[in-house]
Design a protein around this nucleic acid. Structure first.
Lengths: 107, 107
DNA sequence: AATTAATATTGCAATATTACGATTATACCT
DNA sequence: AGGTATAATCGTAATATTGCAATATTAATT
């Protein structure tokens, strides 16, 4: 990439972009969807379901986890990954605030 | 990238990811915000406002244009880029459908 | 037609992302 | 402790993204 310009974007713009980035891959969209549909979910299940290798899924899970969208807790030998519904709603709100304040039209 | 696995994601998942990708960069978030705030907007204005070079802005504009989020029409020597509000709302709806159907909790 | 202003395109470098095999850690079970 | 199942991490290759300088294109104006 070119020299990272010290372009000043607003914090809101950076936040919206960061959230969008998490959802910018079909696998992560699918993983979140899948997790929300399960009573209890385990990485290996996801591997079977999505059709990517275990390390790749694990990598995607890490990105989702770092964004705070899921919480993992051990349950026997497996980890139960659960949606952080509160955080998920925060994401949705931030998006809608952005969408709702960005709809004026010049033409 | 590794061999592109023929992973089957649903069309909805692919669509959500594609939309998210457009918004996954602060510059594009900022551009959309700026365009929606103007009565009439011109690329060079954006260049001054965002602080990236003209080719870079033009590139981002192309990505936004290809997603159908803005329409450009010539107005004298400049191009007037306008938000496609209808398309923008479609984006928002798709996102909200995704967010609303993906909020169950297992823990 | 030449000039000028505005935007797009090209070419290329730096970096980020995605994917997977191999390996390592973790935790249960015998 | 040793064995087994599950998930994380490491290393690395392929590809995508981002950014800009240089150049080309487009359209109004002289």
């Amino acid at each position: 990439m070119g020299a990272s310009n010290l372009t000043i974007h607003s914090q809101e713009q950076i936040d919206v972009a960061a959230i969008a980035k998490v959802l910018a891959h079909p696998a992560r969209v699918a993983i979140l969807e899948y997790i929300s549909q399960q009573d209890s979910c385990i990485c290996n299940d996801i591997v079977d379901k999505i059709g990517l290798s275990q390390p790749t899924i694990s990598q995607h899970l890490q990105i989702i986890r770092q964004a705070g969208l899921i919480k993992g807790s051990f349950e026997g030998k497996s980890i139960c990954y659960c949606l952080d519904v509160k955080r998920f709603k925060e994401f949705q709100d931030l998006f809608n605030i952005y969408f709702n304040t960005t709809t004026a039209n010049c033409c």
